[in-house]
């Protein structure tokens, strides 16, 4: 029961959706499958929230090390959730101003929008921006032009970086843009590398990924790969 039913569900749903692609009468099934998936994904956010509560409430009740941070997590979680779900500060929808719940939850002026603008966006954007420092640091340590392949990688990275900034055109400004060597200008070279060499490599990678996904999907649907059920089998 615990392992057979999930296997039947996976195979049935998967095969139905594949068949729906080839039978026009079943095309609605494919759309429904996508919508069902997005609904379950949205409910999974609730699971995520519940799991977060479970972990941090336990940490708080046990007075574990760093419990004060759990208090911040829970506080910010509840405030954001309440102002978002109850649409606090939401202006009426101009088309239906008599329906108080018809206004947008993320409209300018709502408390939820304020949290997005001044907490969520700056925090997440800065987190990602910090990766610039770590990528630069990792590249400095890892990139060594010790063989031909490494030189290719390093050289291409430099061409792309220079070509995308003002430094590239400035460095190769002396090459006439209409002459026979115009293609050696860094911005042109960068565009050519992206358009030709990068496209060739990316195409092969994408073809490989597609084949990999197709074979893995078939293994899952046929019940040969059961790793998602856990238990190491």
């Amino acid at each position: 029961m615990k392992r057979t039913v999930p296997l039947i569900i996976t195979a049935t749903v998967g095969l139905l959706l594949i068949v729906a692609n080839f039978v026009p009468a079943l095309s609605e099934l494919s759309e429904d499958g996508t919508t069902f998936f997005s609904i379950i994904a949205a409910i999974a956010f609730v699971l995520g929230g519940g799991s977060l509560l479970k972990v941090h409430l336990k940490k708080l009740s046990d007075r574990d090390r760093g419990w004060a941070y759990s208090l911040i997590v829970l506080g910010s979680f509840f405030v954001t959730l309440v102002v978002g779900l109850f649409k606090i500060g939401a202006p009426p929808n101009p088309a239906y101003p008599d329906k108080p719940w018809a206004g947008g939850y993320n409209e300018p002026g709502t408390f939820f929008n304020w949290i997005y603008e001044y907490l969520f966006y700056p925090l997440t954007a800065t987190m990602f921006a910090m990766l610039a420092f770590y990528i630069a640091s990792a590249a400095f340590r890892a990139f060594r032009a010790k063989n031909f392949e490494a030189i290719l990688l390093l050289g291409t990275a430099f061409i792309i970086l220079l070509g995308q900034t003002a430094a590239g055109p400035a460095l190769t400004n002396w090459i006439p843009p209409d002459g026979p060597f115009a293609g050696l200008r860094l911005e042109e070279l960068s565009a050519y590398v992206m358009d030709v060499f990068n496209t060739a490599g990316s195409r092969a990678i994408v073809i490989g990924i597609a084949l990999g996904i197709a074979s893995t999907s078939l293994k899952i649907l046929m019940g040969l790969d059961r790793s998602y059920l856990g238990g190491g089998n």
């Binding site: 997005s38 609904i39 994904a41 949205a42 409910i43 956010f45 609730v46 995520g48 929230g49 977060l52 941070y69 759990s70 911040i72 997590v73 829970l74 506080g75 910010s76 979680f77 509840f78 405030v79 954001t80 959730l81 978002g84 779900l85 939850y105 993320n106 939820f112 949290i115 997005y116 907490l119 969520f120 925090l123 997440t124 987190m127």
Partner: peptide, 19 residues
């Protein structure tokens, strides 16, 4: 900690109202 709390609730709210 603020990122964790706000993001979890943000995506829950977006999922609720949009999906």
């Amino acid at each position: 900690s603020l990122v964790v709390g706000v993001s979890a609730a943000y995506w829950m709210v977006v999922g609720f109202w949009d999906i």
